[in-house]
Simulated scan of single mutants.
Amino acid sequence: MSVVTLTRFRIDPADAAELRLRHAALVSAIRSAAPGLAEARLGKLDDETWIGIWRWESTEGLRAAREIAPARPESTAAFSLARDVTVEQMEIIDEG
């Protein structure tokens, strides 16, 4: 069953272009190190509030990524721009 994480955070609007670059690097690094990432999206609600939506093929894939992500320099770089970070996780019950 698929699992989705929603990571909501705030950034300085001046960092938007850099955030996009760092997010892309993070996605690439996680994909190469922990299989199972089906989709990763980055969106913004306003100039300061952003949401990362990552869909995993399984809970096991997410668990593997969470074990390696903190040690990855791409994670540190991406999250160094963020503040007020919250994360939610949900299992996908119905897919349409």
Score class of each variant (00 low, 15 high):
Met1His: 07
Met1Trp: 00
Met1Lys: 08
Met1Val: 06
Ser2Ile: 00
Val3Ile: 14
Val3Tyr: 08
Val3Met: 06
Val4Pro: 00
Val4Gly: 00
Thr5Val: 13
Thr5Gln: 13
Thr5Leu: 09
Arg8Gln: 13
Phe9Gly: 04
Arg10His: 10
Arg10Phe: 01
Arg10Met: 05
Arg10Ser: 13
Ala14His: 09
Asp15Ile: 02
Ala17Thr: 13
Ala17Arg: 14
Ala17Asn: 08
Ala17Gln: 14
Leu19Met: 12
Leu21Thr: 14
Arg22Cys: 01
His23Leu: 06
Ala25Gly: 02
Leu26Phe: 11
Val27Phe: 04
Ser28Gln: 14
Arg31Tyr: 01
Arg31Thr: 08
Arg31Ala: 05
Arg31Asn: 02
Arg31Lys: 15
Pro35Tyr: 07
Pro35Met: 07
Leu37Thr: 05
Leu37Gln: 11
Ala38Phe: 01
Ala38Gly: 05
Ala38Gln: 12
Ala38Arg: 12
Glu39Gly: 00
Glu39Asp: 12
Ala40Gly: 05
Ala40Phe: 04
Leu42Tyr: 08
Gly43Cys: 13
Lys44Ser: 11
Lys44His: 13
Leu45Asn: 05
Asp47Phe: 02
Asp47Trp: 03
Asp47Cys: 02
Asp47Thr: 07
Asp47His: 07
Asp47Ser: 12
Asp47Gln: 13
Asp47Gly: 01
Asp47Asn: 11
Trp50Asn: 02
Trp50Ser: 02
Ile51Val: 15
Ile51Cys: 08
Gly52Lys: 06
Ile53Ser: 04
Trp54Asn: 10
Trp54Ile: 06
Trp54His: 07
Arg55Asp: 00
Trp56Asp: 03
Trp56Leu: 07
Glu57Ala: 08
Ser58Glu: 04
Thr59Gly: 09
Thr59Trp: 09
Glu60Ser: 13
Glu60His: 10
Glu60Thr: 14
Gly61Thr: 04
Leu62Cys: 03
Arg63Lys: 11
Arg63Cys: 00
Arg63Trp: 03
Ala65Leu: 08
Ala65Asp: 06
Arg66Gln: 14
Arg66Thr: 01
Glu67Ser: 11
Glu67Ala: 15
Glu67His: 10
Ala69Lys: 08
Ala71Asn: 11
Ala71Lys: 15
Arg72His: 05
Arg72Trp: 00
Ala77Gln: 06
Ala77Thr: 03
Ala77Asp: 13
Ala77Arg: 10
Phe79Trp: 13
Ser80Thr: 10
Ala82Phe: 11
Asp84Cys: 03
Asp84Asn: 12
Val85Asn: 06
Thr86Arg: 15
Thr86Glu: 15
Thr86Asp: 11
Val87Asp: 01
Val87Leu: 15
Glu88Ser: 12
Gln89Met: 15
Met90Thr: 14
Glu91Arg: 14
Ile92Thr: 15
Asp94Ala: 15
Glu95Ile: 08
Glu95Ala: 13
Gly96Tyr: 08
Gly96Trp: 08
Gly96Phe: 11
Gly96Ser: 10
